[in-house]
Design a protein around this nucleic acid. Structure first.
Lengths: 210, 210
DNA sequence: CGTTGTGAACGATTTCACAGCG
DNA sequence: CGCTGTGAAATCGTTCACAACG
């Protein structure tokens, strides 16, 4: 475990490796070389070895990596040998679809609270049993239920104000689906998911290559 | 318009600039300097000038950039002075939420077809008036309705097969929400959106910083 | 005068190439 | 022998600093 600065890209690739390794495990693959793993992930083999080298020595020379071990080691690195509690803010189309989406729970992310501002929605029960709280109760509920990460799925106009409330409630990690750049203090880590930015990139490639 | 290789990061930033510029226009800002625009976008002013310099000279020295002009020029660069037709494949929770999501249409992306494999869903009408087709009709409908970009919101297990069908139908741009790395020929541009990878990154930061 | 546009310096990340080792 | 781990080289992207110019 070194003390160098680790590229953000490395962290994202570790997640990708993890997904692929979990698939490989299901296919009963015991051991895999960096070269074969690289092909599955669409990266350079040396990249994988470098990425892992930031955190330790996990392979066996002349052999490769034991799949079960590498999975557990990457989980350890990323902090995934545990459950993370999420709070959804904004239970519209997108928010409620995400809460019902099975992928979160599969990877240890549990929606433990949901908030909205619409009086029609507050008090309603979601398919997973969660009852929607009013945003005014955010700080209280976040602390009570030990929420670690806030997910913003509100309209753009509400996103900054919601982010402020999340931070006030002591939250340091935000996944933001609203199409605005939200401002947060350094202690808080934000990841943005903006569908239309990804589409813009596709549009650019379609426009120029053909 | 140079012939250098343009960083992918530049393209993504142009989208961000565009979003901010559109907000500025609504606030009746006529002209903006790279320095002020940079603050809004959270980047370095020289970065903005460099990004734009790949494509031409759009500013006025001593003054800055005219907001309306820059918007139209970035749209021109990205290929957004037109409408793009999308096909949704997989009309589950996520797929149907995305179709109802207003942000796509706002930026010129129109869902013009929707496909599913579930006989219960095929033939049903979506809130936007679209009737769900069976995936078997994909190639036919894609050509008929002049679809440009495929959006995959199926389970991971179906994603690769759907991608193959999209490519067979002549599609060269795919937005993939399924949590797998799909393999496509070079002519096709894929953008992945994997929620849990973003959450993994947040989990890592929460685990290490505290 | 102020801000753009840009070569040059810098910094970061990826890839190479091979020593080290099971 | 084969594959990992890693210093060194190459590549790529960002920031600086200032000349050019409206």
């Amino acid at each position: 475990m070194k003390f160098t600065k680790i590229p953000l890209a490395t962290i994202n690739r570790l997640s990708v490796y993890l997904r692929v390794l979990e698939d490989l495990l299901e296919d009963n693959t015991d051991v895999i070389s960096s070269e074969r793993l690289a092909r599955h992930c669409g990266v350079n083999p040396a990249q994988i070895r470098k990425d892992l080298a930031y955190f330790g020595e996990f392979g066996v020379r002349g052999v490769g990596y034991r799949v079960v071990d590498l999975i557990s080691q990457i989980k350890e690195i990323l902090g995934l040998n545990r459950t993370w509690n999420l709070a959804m803010v904004g239970v519209g189309n997108l928010g409620s679809a995400l809460i019902r989406h099975g992928n979160f729970i599969k990877h240890g992310y549990v929606f433990a609270a949901a908030f909205d501002i619409d009086p029609e929605k507050v008090g309603k029960k979601l398919p997973n049993g969660l009852i929607i709280n009013h945003v005014d109760e955010l700080e209280e509920v976040v602390k009570e239920r030990n929420i670690h990460i806030g997910v913003i799925a509100t309209p753009a106009s509400a996103a900054q104000s919601v982010a402020n409330q999340l931070i006030l409630a002591g939250i340091n990690g935000i996944l933001n689906f609203a199409p605005v750049q939200i401002q947060v203090p350094d202690c808080c880590h934000v990841e943005n998911i903006d569908f239309t930015i990804k589409l813009d990139s596709i549009a650019y490639h379609l426009s120029t290559n053909f």
